[in-house]
Amino acid sequence: MPSETPQAEVGPTGCPHRSGPHSAKGSLEKGSPEDKEAKEPLWIRPDAPSRCTWQLGRPASESPHHHTAPAKSPKILPDILKKIGDTPMVRINKIGKKFGLKCELLAKCEFFNAGGSVKDRISLRMIEDAERDGTLKPGDTIIEPTSGNTGIGLALAAAVRGYRCIIVMPEKMSSEKVDVLRALGAEIVRTPTNARFDSPESHVGVAWRLKNEIPNSHILDQYRNASNPLAHYDTTADEILQQCDGKLDMLVASVGTGGTITGIARKLKEKCPGCRIIGVDPEGSILAEPEELNQTEQTTYEVEGIGYDFIPTVLDRTVVDKWFKSNDEEAFTFARMLIAQEGLLCGGSAGSTVAVAVKAAQELQEGQRCVVILPDSVRNYMTKFLSDRWMLQKGFLKEEDLTEKKPWWWHLRVQELGLSAPLTVLPTITCGHTIEILREKGFDQAPVVDEAGVILGMVTLGNMLSSLLAGKVQPSDQVGKVIYKQFKQIRLTDTLGRLSHILEMDHFALVV
């Protein structure tokens, strides 16, 4: 994948999101292997301009796509893939009243899908469409860049269908997702969380590099694949309309690839034109409109599966009536509230959605109805927002919020430890010299600072030695090549209790 991002070429006709291997024109390309080798690009942008032909009021008969309808489940399912879809609609009884809503608040519980998330729908649909058009064949390999849930859905379907599955996901995604993927037989590649989507090191860039190296491999490409919004247009939206008897006044959905909100909203605009569509985008993402909503100094966020630093091709923002931004604290607070007060075992993005819903639905009156999409299960986040310690460490809970008995030293300040200034190293000294210094002084790690004293990161003896043994660096290389740029900081005025929580999850903390 090139470091400079080429513009994806656009073909003359058809839909841009065809499933299957992508040609340089962004659509299915038939021909000899030699032709494909000559024409197939190194990668295709996940934010390529959409060429979708959908228009409100256009006859369904003019759609270029294969459409399906929700099917009634048999008493005995032939395999677990038949437990994807037909998820329950559940009334939220307490939270709406707590925040003064007059309307009825309903939750579409997508964590009841077989793999635990709304992404099971698009995973199965992308595979079925690729099999139907002859792209996927027995023994082929599926590769997908994902925040985890699409990966789980694909790995689940691949396990049943017999495909090899490789999932490329950023490091910030939970260990629970990784464990589930491994249990399903998927191979996992992790990428830096802070890598831009168009960087060769991003999950998108690495996935395309693997595709170019592995024979008979395919990126189904949830960011561009029409099967993504079509899955929701054909099934999720129809289920909502049936469950609500066609009567709903507002739908609120958090947005990642945009397939969920695009597919549902398009069908609702056709069948229930008075329904307002509300999009939820986390602070630090750029999906919301108008652009002024996205202006923030924050560039990272903890909530998973929603928000991006690019506009995915499948996201149709014209069908969203209003956007709201959400933050991590309210997302996790509301997710825990949904679990504790409503018994809905949902993930953090569901918290984002409901946090926005109780604001947006203030305009609705008694007798009206708001539906929220709860995308995934708490299963993926047992060591994250479900953990009091994690919430404390991230600053989303305060010590006084917890009532468990603490040891005698818990409320003492870090400054009472009488710490001395640490050994520091410059980023320009060599790895070999740094190892000598650390061994001589008896230290395992040291902060790396520039000549102005600005902290650049941390270097550890173990990481340097393993990097040297693996051949990633040489003793003569500058130590700046092996620094940890993500590390926890703590102030002298913070409590030892807070430091204790940090050290339970990290090997060190830097006192500043």
Results as ranks from 00 to 15, higher is better:
residue 2 P to W: 08
residue 4 E to V: 10
residue 5 T to A: 02
residue 5 T to S: 11
residue 6 P to L: 12
residue 7 Q to D: 09
residue 7 Q to N: 15
residue 8 A to G: 07
residue 8 A to S: 02
residue 9 E to W: 02
residue 11 G to I: 02
residue 12 P to A: 02
residue 12 P to W: 09
residue 13 T to S: 02
residue 15 C to I: 02
residue 16 P to K: 11
residue 17 H to V: 14
residue 17 H to I: 15
residue 18 R to P: 02
residue 19 S to I: 08
residue 19 S to Y: 08
residue 20 G to F: 12
residue 22 H to K: 02
residue 22 H to A: 05
residue 25 K to I: 15
residue 26 G to D: 02
residue 26 G to V: 14
residue 28 L to K: 07
residue 28 L to R: 04
residue 31 G to M: 02
residue 31 G to E: 11
residue 31 G to L: 02
residue 31 G to F: 11
residue 32 S to A: 15
residue 32 S to K: 05
residue 33 P to F: 02
residue 33 P to A: 04
residue 34 E to S: 05
residue 34 E to F: 12
residue 36 K to S: 02
residue 36 K to G: 02
residue 36 K to T: 08
residue 37 E to C: 08
residue 37 E to L: 14
residue 37 E to N: 09
residue 37 E to T: 05
residue 38 A to F: 15
residue 39 K to L: 13
residue 39 K to R: 14
residue 40 E to R: 05
residue 42 L to V: 02
residue 43 W to C: 11
residue 43 W to L: 11
residue 43 W to M: 10
residue 44 I to W: 02
residue 45 R to V: 07
residue 45 R to Y: 02
residue 47 D to L: 02
residue 48 A to Y: 10
residue 51 R to A: 02
residue 55 Q to S: 12
residue 55 Q to L: 06
residue 56 L to W: 09
residue 58 R to G: 06
residue 59 P to V: 02
residue 60 A to C: 10
residue 62 E to H: 02
residue 63 S to W: 02
residue 63 S to C: 11
residue 65 H to P: 06
residue 65 H to M: 13
residue 65 H to W: 04
residue 65 H to V: 05
residue 66 H to F: 10
residue 67 H to L: 10
residue 67 H to C: 09
residue 68 T to I: 13
residue 68 T to D: 15
residue 69 A to F: 13
residue 70 P to R: 15
residue 70 P to S: 14
residue 71 A to C: 02
residue 73 S to V: 11
residue 74 P to G: 08
residue 75 K to E: 05
residue 76 I to V: 02
residue 77 L to P: 02
residue 79 D to W: 05
residue 79 D to M: 15
residue 79 D to I: 07
residue 80 I to R: 02
residue 81 L to R: 08
residue 81 L to H: 06
residue 81 L to G: 12
residue 83 K to M: 07
residue 83 K to V: 04
residue 85 G to V: 12
residue 87 T to I: 15
residue 89 M to W: 04
residue 90 V to A: 07
residue 90 V to G: 02
residue 90 V to L: 06
residue 91 R to Y: 11
residue 94 K to A: 09
residue 96 G to Q: 02
residue 96 G to C: 13
residue 97 K to T: 06
residue 97 K to W: 05
residue 97 K to L: 11
residue 97 K to G: 14
residue 97 K to S: 13
residue 100 G to E: 11
residue 101 L to D: 05
residue 101 L to S: 02
residue 101 L to I: 02
residue 105 L to S: 02
residue 105 L to Q: 02
residue 105 L to W: 02
residue 105 L to C: 07
residue 106 L to I: 11
residue 107 A to G: 13
residue 107 A to C: 12
residue 109 C to H: 04
residue 110 E to C: 02
residue 111 F to G: 06
residue 112 F to A: 07
residue 112 F to G: 02
residue 112 F to E: 02
residue 113 N to Y: 02
residue 113 N to I: 02
residue 113 N to M: 02
residue 114 A to V: 08
residue 118 V to G: 02
residue 118 V to H: 15
residue 119 K to L: 02
residue 121 R to Q: 02
residue 121 R to F: 05
residue 121 R to D: 04
residue 122 I to L: 02
residue 124 L to I: 02
residue 126 M to V: 02
residue 127 I to H: 02
residue 128 E to I: 14
residue 128 E to N: 08
residue 129 D to L: 05
residue 129 D to V: 09
residue 130 A to W: 02
residue 131 E to C: 02
residue 131 E to V: 10
residue 133 D to W: 14
residue 133 D to F: 02
residue 133 D to V: 15
residue 134 G to V: 02
residue 135 T to M: 10
residue 135 T to D: 02
residue 136 L to Y: 07
residue 136 L to G: 04
residue 137 K to N: 15
residue 138 P to Y: 13
residue 138 P to N: 10
residue 138 P to V: 08
residue 139 G to A: 02
residue 139 G to I: 05
residue 140 D to L: 02
residue 141 T to Q: 08
residue 142 I to Y: 02
residue 142 I to S: 05
residue 143 I to S: 02
residue 143 I to F: 06
residue 144 E to I: 07
residue 144 E to H: 02
residue 144 E to G: 02
residue 145 P to Y: 02
residue 145 P to F: 02
residue 145 P to T: 07
residue 146 T to L: 10
residue 147 S to A: 05
residue 147 S to T: 02
residue 148 G to R: 02
residue 148 G to P: 12
residue 149 N to C: 02
residue 152 I to A: 04
residue 152 I to L: 02
residue 153 G to C: 05
residue 155 A to L: 06
residue 157 A to P: 15
residue 157 A to E: 07
residue 157 A to V: 08
residue 157 A to T: 11
residue 158 A to I: 06
residue 158 A to R: 04
residue 159 A to G: 05
residue 159 A to T: 13
residue 160 V to D: 02
residue 160 V to K: 02
residue 160 V to C: 15
residue 160 V to I: 06
residue 160 V to P: 02
residue 161 R to D: 02
residue 163 Y to G: 02
residue 163 Y to E: 05
residue 163 Y to V: 02
residue 165 C to F: 05
residue 165 C to Y: 06
residue 166 I to L: 09
residue 167 I to F: 06
residue 169 M to F: 02
residue 170 P to F: 05
residue 172 K to Y: 02
residue 173 M to S: 10
residue 174 S to R: 02
residue 175 S to I: 12
residue 175 S to G: 06
residue 175 S to P: 05
residue 176 E to R: 04
residue 176 E to F: 02
residue 177 K to F: 02
residue 178 V to F: 13
residue 179 D to Y: 11
residue 179 D to G: 09
residue 179 D to C: 11
residue 179 D to N: 04
residue 180 V to W: 02
residue 180 V to F: 05
residue 181 L to F: 02
residue 183 A to G: 14
residue 185 G to C: 02
residue 186 A to T: 06
residue 187 E to A: 08
residue 187 E to Y: 08
residue 189 V to I: 07
residue 190 R to C: 04
residue 190 R to H: 08
residue 190 R to L: 06
residue 191 T to R: 06
residue 191 T to Y: 05
residue 191 T to V: 02
residue 192 P to W: 02
residue 193 T to C: 07
residue 194 N to R: 02
residue 195 A to Q: 10
residue 195 A to V: 13
residue 196 R to C: 08
residue 196 R to V: 04
residue 197 F to I: 08
residue 199 S to P: 02
residue 200 P to I: 08
residue 200 P to Y: 11
residue 200 P to E: 07
residue 201 E to V: 02
residue 201 E to S: 13
residue 202 S to L: 02
residue 203 H to N: 05
residue 204 V to H: 09
residue 204 V to T: 11
residue 206 V to R: 04
residue 209 R to S: 10
residue 209 R to N: 10
residue 210 L to W: 06
residue 210 L to D: 04
residue 212 N to F: 09
residue 212 N to Q: 12
residue 212 N to P: 04
residue 212 N to L: 12
residue 212 N to I: 06
residue 213 E to Y: 02
residue 214 I to S: 02
residue 215 P to S: 07
residue 215 P to W: 09
residue 215 P to L: 05
residue 215 P to I: 05
residue 215 P to N: 02
residue 216 N to F: 07
residue 216 N to P: 06
residue 217 S to M: 02
residue 218 H to L: 05
residue 218 H to P: 04
residue 219 I to Q: 02
residue 220 L to D: 02
residue 221 D to A: 04
residue 221 D to Y: 14
residue 221 D to W: 06
residue 222 Q to R: 04
residue 223 Y to A: 02
residue 223 Y to V: 02
residue 224 R to V: 02
residue 224 R to A: 08
residue 225 N to W: 02
residue 225 N to L: 04
residue 225 N to M: 02
residue 227 S to W: 05
residue 230 L to N: 06
residue 231 A to T: 15
residue 231 A to M: 09
residue 231 A to C: 15
residue 231 A to L: 02
residue 231 A to G: 06
residue 234 D to A: 09
residue 234 D to P: 02
residue 234 D to M: 10
residue 234 D to G: 08
residue 235 T to M: 08
residue 236 T to R: 02
residue 236 T to F: 07
residue 236 T to Y: 02
residue 236 T to E: 02
residue 236 T to D: 06
residue 237 A to G: 11
residue 238 D to I: 08
residue 238 D to Q: 02
residue 240 I to C: 02
residue 240 I to P: 05
residue 241 L to A: 10
residue 241 L to W: 10
residue 241 L to C: 06
residue 242 Q to S: 06
residue 242 Q to A: 05
residue 242 Q to G: 13
residue 242 Q to Y: 08
residue 242 Q to W: 04
residue 243 Q to Y: 14
residue 243 Q to T: 14
residue 246 G to L: 05
residue 246 G to F: 02
residue 249 D to K: 13
residue 249 D to V: 05
residue 249 D to L: 05
residue 250 M to D: 10
residue 251 L to W: 02
residue 251 L to I: 10
residue 251 L to H: 11
residue 253 A to P: 05
residue 254 S to I: 02
residue 256 G to H: 07
residue 257 T to I: 04
residue 257 T to V: 02
residue 257 T to W: 06
residue 258 G to Y: 13
residue 258 G to V: 02
residue 258 G to L: 02
residue 259 G to F: 04
residue 259 G to Y: 06
residue 260 T to L: 02
residue 260 T to W: 02
residue 261 I to V: 14
residue 263 G to Y: 02
residue 263 G to K: 05
residue 264 I to P: 05
residue 264 I to H: 07
residue 265 A to S: 12
residue 267 K to H: 08
residue 267 K to R: 09
residue 268 L to G: 02
residue 268 L to Y: 07
residue 269 K to A: 11
residue 270 E to V: 11
residue 270 E to C: 02
residue 271 K to V: 10
residue 271 K to R: 11
residue 272 C to M: 15
residue 272 C to L: 09
residue 273 P to I: 07
residue 274 G to P: 02
residue 275 C to I: 14
residue 275 C to P: 06
residue 276 R to A: 13
residue 276 R to V: 11
residue 276 R to S: 02
